[in-house]
């Protein structure tokens, strides 16, 4: 609506969509995106590394099921802002604080899905492997985990998409990846920055989801033929 568009300078006009912003702040956007990606990847990776032993523990000793599942569900109830704040005395203003909070959130879905995947492994498959002389570790690694993989990966996808969105709240302690740009853009009422960072965030979640789906297909080639047929039938 400004009468003088200043030779098309959308930065001056504070437009929502602004090519000049993308060109002039490229490095800043890249840095924020990279921070967002590594915080997310690290959080989900640690989440999987913690969830797997917990799921195995619950499966081996069912009396731990109620406390473990109850506690991880309870953690999910805690507001993200509160979670990050409660960790402040332990970690100070650091990325470790954000990663720890995100790991705790991811456990809810990861433990549940890993456990469901492990419990869905057919007893016959286990028996057959034992009959072939597989020890417990080899049984887990070569039979149970591959069969549990679709459920586990479904959990990883949900956890990753949620974590990408939640990472923005890390802006509270200045470690929120694209959330930092959103926060800064809001303080300075810089529309292009807030919109660009928000859209990048959603894009990041979508790309992560597609990549993980591809990874799942690669890791479980035996399900491909079946799901292709099912997909064809559904059409």
């Amino acid at each position: 609506m400004t009468s003088e568009p200043a030779a098309g300078n959308c930065l001056v006009a504070n437009d929502w969509i602004c090519g000049a912003y993308l060109r002039s702040r490229g490095p800043e956007l890249t840095d924020a995106t990279l921070q967002h990606v590594w915080i997310t990847v690290l959080s989900v990776a640690i989440g999987v590394a913690v969830a797997l032993p917990l799921a195995l523990l619950v499966r081996a000793r069912p009396r731990f099921a109620a406390p473990v599942l109850g506690l991880t569900t309870l953690l999910y109830t805690i507001p993200s802002l509160a979670m990050f704040s409660l960790l402040l005395p332990l970690f100070g203003l650091s990325a470790a604080l954000v990663v720890t909070g995100l790991v705790l959130y991811s456990l809810t879905i990861l433990v549940r899905n890993t456990l469901a995947g492990l419990q869905a492994v057919p007893e016959e498959a286990r028996e057959a492997a034992r009959g072939m002389g597989y020890g417990p570790l080899r049984l887990l690694w070569e039979v149970e985990l591959p069969l549990a993989l679709p459920a586990l990966m479904a959990g990883v996808r949900i956890a990753t998409v949620s974590t990408v969105a939640l990472t923005t709240v890390g802006a509270l302690v200045g470690k929120g990846g694209l959330g930092n740009l959103i926060d800064e853009g809001l303080q300075t009422t810089f529309k292009a920055q807030v919109l660009t960072a928000s859209l990048l965030c959603v894009l990041l979640a979508a790309v992560a989801d597609v990549l993980l789906l591809g990874l799942q297909r690669l890791l479980t080639p035996w399900t491909r033929a079946r799901s292709d047929r099912a997909g064809g039938a559904a059409l």
């Binding site: 998409v161 969105a165 923005t168 709240v169 959330g179 853009g185 807030v194 928000s198 965030c201 959603v202």
Partner: peptide
């Protein structure tokens, strides 16, 4: 799930 509430609020 993919849409950050913080971003929506800021917008």
């Amino acid at each position: 799930r993919a849409i950050p509430v913080f971003a929506v609020l800021a917008l």
